[in-house]
Simulated assay, not measured.
Amino acid sequence: MTKLQLSVAMGDYDRTRALFDGRVQIDGVDPIYMLLNPEEMFFRAMRSMDFDIAELSFSSYLVKHSKGDCPYIAIPVFLSRAFRHTSIYVRKDRIKKPEDLKGKRVGLPEYQLTANVWARAILQDDFGVWPEDVTWVRGGIDTPGRPEKIKLQLPANVKVEVAPEGKTISELLDQGDIDGFIGPRPPSRSALANPNIGWLFDDPTAVAKDYYRRTGVFPIMHVVGIRKELAAQHPWLPGAVFKAFTQSKAAALALLSDTSATKVTLPFVEEQLKAARETMGDDYWSYGVAPALKTLETFVRHHHSQGLSARLMSVDELFHPATYETYSI
Rank of each mutant, 00 (worst) to 15 (best):
D142Q: 15
L62Y: 05
R84D: 08
A45N: 10
D133T: 00
R94T: 10
P98C: 12
P164T: 02
S60H: 11
M46G: 09
D174C: 07
V106Q: 01
A156K: 15
R84G: 08
L172M: 04
K92R: 14
A115S: 15
T114W: 00
D52A: 09
N116Y: 07
R84H: 13
G103R: 01
T168W: 07
A82P: 04
K102I: 00
S60M: 06
C70K: 03
L108P: 05
I88A: 13
N157R: 14
I150A: 02
A54S: 15
V129C: 03
R84S: 11
I73M: 11
S48G: 05
A163P: 03
P164V: 07
Y89K: 08
Q175C: 04
M41D: 11
L101C: 03
P164L: 04
E110Q: 14
G68K: 08
K64G: 06
F127L: 12
P164Q: 06
I178G: 01
R91P: 13
N116M: 04
P109N: 13
L108H: 12
W136F: 07
P155V: 07
V117H: 14
T114C: 09
G128T: 04
D142G: 15
D93A: 04
R81M: 12
P38D: 09
Q153S: 12
S170E: 00
